[in-house]
C-alpha cells in the first residue's frame, strides 16, 4: 500500500524543482515553465487530498486551477512576446532597464 505521504512528497519535490527553476533559469520562457511545474505539483497535492478525504472539492479545485493556469499562460506568453518585441532578447539578466 502506498501511504498518502508518498504522493505529497512527490508533489513537494515537483514544487521545489519548480522553485529552483524559477530562480536559476536564465531565459524568461523557462522561468514561466517552472512556474507551471509548481502549479502541477500543487494539483497533485489537491487530488491526493481529495482521494484521501473522499471529498470532491479537491477535484473541483484542480479544475479551477487549470482554468486559471490557462488564462495566465495566454496572458503571460503575450507579455513575453511584447517584451521580445521591445527588447529583442529573452535573457532575464537583460531585463535591467530599471535599476535599484
Amino acid at each position: 500500500m502506498i501511504p498518502l505521504s508518498y504522493y505529497l512528497i512527490l508533489s513537494a519535490i515537483l514544487f521545489c524543482i519548480g522553485v529552483a527553476g524559477f530562480f536559476f533559469k536564465r531565459d524568461i520562457v523557462s522561468i514561466f515553465i517552472s512556474i507551471e511545474l509548481m502549479l502541477n505539483g500543487v494539483n497533485l497535492a489537491f487530488v491526493a487530498f481529495s482521494h484521501a478525504l473522499h471529498s470532491i472539492s479537491g477535484n473541483l479545485f484542480v479544475f479551477f486551477v487549470m482554468v486559471v493556469a490557462a488564462a495566465e499562460a495566454a496572458v503571460g506568453l503575450a507579455i513575453i512576446i511584447a517584451v521580445v518585441r521591445a527588447r529583442q532578447t529573452l535573457n532575464v539578466d537583460r531585463m535591467d532597464l530599471m535599476k535599484l
Binding site: M1, I2, P3, L4, S5, Y6, Y7, L8, I9, A12, I13, C16, A48, H51, A52
Partner: peptide
C-alpha cells in the same frame, strides 16, 4: 528545504494508505 518538507509530510500524513 526539500528534505525538511518531505520529512514533515512523511510524519504528518504517513499513516493513511491510498
Amino acid at each position: 528545504l526539500l528534505v525538511e518538507l518531505a520529512g514533515f509530510f512523511a510524519a504528518a500524513f504517513g499513516a493513511t494508505p491510498v
